[in-house]
Amino acid sequence: MSTALSTDRHKRPATIVAFRDALLPPKRSGGRKSLAAVLLVLVVAGAWFGYQQYQGGLEQQRVVDSRLQTGQDCFYSQDFKCAIENALVVRSLAPQNAKAAKLLNAAEEAQAEAQQEQLVNERMQAAETCFEAEDFDCARSRLRTLLDLVPGQAQAILMLQRVEQASARQLITTTLERAQDCVDAADIDCARQALAAAQEAGAQPGDLYPVQSQVDEMALELMAAARDREARIGLLLEEGRSCLQLNDFACVEDRVVAVLEQDSGNSAAAELRQAVAAAREQLRFREQTVAGFLQEAEDCFQRKNYSCTIAKSESALAIIPRHAAASAMIERADQAQKQAKMNISIE
């Protein structure tokens, strides 16, 4: 090109054709062949690469299908750990695979349910062992711990009721045995207190009768042994006062009538009868007050204000300790409150 543009006229091409040939030399046929070879190599390499990609995709799909089938087989055989592992492999290879996502979710839920069922069975078995050994405190503790973990668990609630009933029967039996020991020791006051405790624990008249009949017989013997009328009256009044302390108004009235039959003007008997009337009125008032608190507790429960329900029920227990309905209301509110908290945590 420098020759074609030289300032020396003798060095420049003589014609325009010569100038063009100097500026654009003719192409060599060998270069064309080289370019074609390069293009051919590129086309072949691209085709080979595409083939390899295609083969790799088929292999990956075979792995996905195989793992997915294995995971489903594991799920149906309840091997949830195996199902989860295979679903995770599929998801790593094909993140958008809907079947893998569905399998993983179902397996995780089933595994959680199976683990909870195992926990329930273990705790129930432990409680049953305690129950069979008549260790009711142990059984009660196991069941309440289970209900804290799984509120509303039906089997635990039913067994807790069995435990409470068996515990009450055990208490009644023990108390009646103590009452019998008091009778054997000729301690009539001790026997009456034990009988009152057994009745408060839920003993039926038929349960009380064997010891009660002995206590009544003992009382008659003590009265017969009294040397004079005043001694018998004093004994009757003392028994009446003991009965009044136990809120056994029928017993008090019997003793008052017996005193008045021997001394119609006995002022102590009249005072004792007035005390019975006052005690009856006081008891009626306390029962009305407790009924009011329990109605308020029920209203709070219907509004799902469980703290209010428990507070009202505890107020009722402060007036009449061991009131069955108040205790049951507290248990209901406590279980409902735990269930509500569990529902919130799940959401």
Rank of each mutant, 00 (worst) to 15 (best):
L42M: 12
V43Y: 03
V43D: 02
V43T: 11
V43W: 02
V43Q: 01
V43E: 03
A45S: 07
G46N: 12
A47W: 12
A47K: 03
W48V: 13
G50E: 02
Y51R: 13
Y51T: 10
Q52N: 10
Q52I: 00
Q53R: 12
Y54G: 10
Y54A: 08
Q55L: 04
G56H: 11
G57S: 13
L58W: 01
Q60F: 05
Q61N: 10
R62W: 06
V63I: 11
V64M: 04
D65E: 13
S66H: 11
R67H: 10
R67P: 00
R67S: 10
L68W: 06
L68G: 04
T70G: 08
T70R: 11
G71K: 03
Q72L: 14
D73G: 11
C74D: 15
Y76I: 09
Y76D: 12
Y76P: 00
Q78L: 05
D79W: 04
F80S: 08
F80A: 07
F80D: 04
F80M: 06
K81D: 15
K81N: 14
K81R: 13
C82R: 04
A83I: 07
A83Y: 05
A83N: 06
A83L: 09
I84T: 06
E85K: 12
E85D: 15
E85H: 09
E85W: 03
N86S: 03
N86M: 03
A87R: 05
A87T: 09
V89I: 10
V90G: 06
V90Y: 09
V90T: 08
R91V: 05
S92M: 03
L93G: 05
A94I: 03
A94D: 13
P95S: 06
P95L: 02
N97I: 01
N97A: 01
K99L: 11
K99Q: 15
A101E: 11
A101I: 02
K102Y: 09
K102N: 13
L103M: 09
L104K: 08
L104H: 10
N105T: 14
N105S: 15
A107R: 04
A107F: 07
E108A: 07
E108M: 10
E108D: 07
E109Y: 04
E109F: 04
E109C: 00
Q111A: 13
Q111N: 13
A112H: 10
E113Q: 15
E113N: 12
A114Q: 15
Q115H: 09
Q116C: 02
Q116R: 14
E117A: 15
E117H: 05
Q118A: 14
Q118V: 06
Q118F: 02
L119R: 13
N121C: 00
E122C: 05
E122A: 14
E122G: 05
E122V: 14
R123V: 04
M124T: 01
M124Q: 03
Q125N: 12
A126R: 03
A126Q: 06
A127P: 04
E128H: 04
E128S: 08
T129Q: 15
T129M: 06
C130E: 04
C130P: 02
F131M: 08
F131N: 04
E132G: 15
E132I: 08
E134H: 12
E134L: 11
E134M: 10
E134F: 07
F136H: 01
D137E: 13
D137R: 11
A139E: 00
A139P: 00
A139R: 00
R140E: 13
R140N: 10
R140D: 11
S141A: 15
R144K: 14
R144S: 09
T145W: 02
T145E: 12
T145S: 11
